[in-house]
Simulated assay, not measured.
Amino acid sequence: MTQSRNHTGPDDEDDVPEWVDQVMATVAAEVRRRRKEMGMSAQDLADACAERGHPIPRNVIANMESGRRATLPLVDVIVLADALETSPILLLYPLGHTDRVQTLPLTDPESAWDALLWFTGEASGLLGGEDPMLRAFRAHQYHQAAARTAARDADHARWEARTANTPEEREDAQRSADHYAATAAHHRDRLRTARAFIREDGGTPPPLHPDLHGIDPEADDPEEHL
Rank of each mutant, 00 (worst) to 15 (best):
R32G: 00
R33F: 04
R33V: 00
R35I: 00
M38I: 06
S41D: 03
A42L: 08
Q43K: 12
L45M: 11
C49S: 07
C49I: 03
A50G: 12
A50E: 15
E51N: 12
P57G: 13
P57W: 12
V60M: 09
V60D: 12
E65A: 00
P73T: 07
P73C: 02
I78F: 11
V79N: 03
L80H: 04
L95M: 13
G96S: 10
D99K: 03
R100D: 14
T103K: 07
L104G: 04
P105S: 07
E110G: 02
S111L: 09
A115V: 03
L116A: 11
L116M: 15
L117F: 10
F119C: 08
F119I: 00
F119Q: 08
T120E: 08
T120I: 10
S124F: 12
S124W: 14
L126N: 02
L127S: 11
G129H: 06
E130A: 12
P132I: 04
M133Y: 08
L134H: 15
R135M: 08
A136T: 03
F137P: 02
R138G: 10
A139Y: 03
H143P: 03
R148H: 04
A150R: 02
A151T: 03
A154S: 11
D155S: 11
D155L: 12
A157K: 05
W159I: 03
W159Q: 10
A161Y: 13
A164V: 01
T166S: 15
E169H: 13
